[in-house]
Amino acid sequence: MQSIPDAALAPEPDSTPSTEQAKSGALLDYVSSSRLPTPWAVFEIHVFVERSNQKEHVLLTLGDVADGQPVLARVHSECLTGDALFSLRCDCGPQLQLALERIAKEGRGALMYLRQEGRGIGLLNKIRAYHLQDQGADTVEANEQLGFPADMRRYDICKDMLEHAGIQKLRLMTNNPRKVKTLQEIGIDVVERVPHQIEGNPFNAGYLNTKRLRLGHWLETDE
């Protein structure tokens, strides 16, 4: 564990728009919630829609997360290839599963699943980037060759999710310094960074090394 310094969708027919749905300045509208049984625990799934582009985002919670105490949390950006198709090119799927396992073991926590595939460039461009990586580019170079920044992800939408759930403080599972800094800059109280490293494999060794050397991720390496 490592401490860190402070630093539109219509409602369902049987539901009534909440105060949060009509909140001025909000980036997301809350839609609905349900129980979600998983191999690790029975979570509560809360779905939101982004006002500017109608993207759907998800918050999973477990236990009493609104008691004012720091909540073990993960902000996870969508990765179809890693999360659903078990790709070994990245560490996304194992990171997602480990986060759910850790939250379940603690009996309390939250996971924000953001629909921003391929570090924000979308699925089609991500596969184009994969093609460039097959030809020798690293992940940063591939994005830049396609005309994109290395990382286009945004985290400001997390604030509406956390406010909806009554979460005030985070113990954030991440290796990404930009994620911590951005969340703190928008007023989210990240009181602790919990390292969240996955063991590499022959297919993602270069990917992890690029994260460490070019994107500044806190990763231990054998090199």
Rank of each mutant, 00 (worst) to 15 (best):
T19D: 14
L183D: 09
V71R: 05
E56D: 06
A142F: 04
S15R: 13
L111N: 08
P17L: 12
A7K: 10
A104G: 14
S18A: 07
G68R: 12
L96R: 11
I4K: 00
C92D: 07
D151L: 04
V42S: 14
Q97S: 08
H57W: 00
L62A: 06
K55T: 01
V42Y: 00
P70L: 02
V49F: 03
L183M: 14
R119Q: 10
I188W: 07
K23C: 09
M112W: 02
G216W: 11
R74A: 06
H164E: 04
Q54G: 06
T81N: 11
N201T: 14
G200R: 06
R108N: 11
N143H: 13
K126P: 11
D222L: 13
E141L: 04
L172P: 03
A22P: 00
K23T: 13
P11N: 06
E50Q: 12
T210A: 15
D222E: 14
I188Y: 09
P202H: 12
Q145C: 00
Y207H: 11
T61W: 05
I4C: 09
R193A: 02
N176Y: 01
R214P: 03
K105E: 15
H131T: 13
G93R: 13
N209A: 15
P13H: 03
E199C: 03
Q2I: 13
K181G: 02
E44V: 11
P11Q: 11
L60T: 03
R153P: 08
N176V: 04
E101A: 15
G122P: 08
Q197M: 13
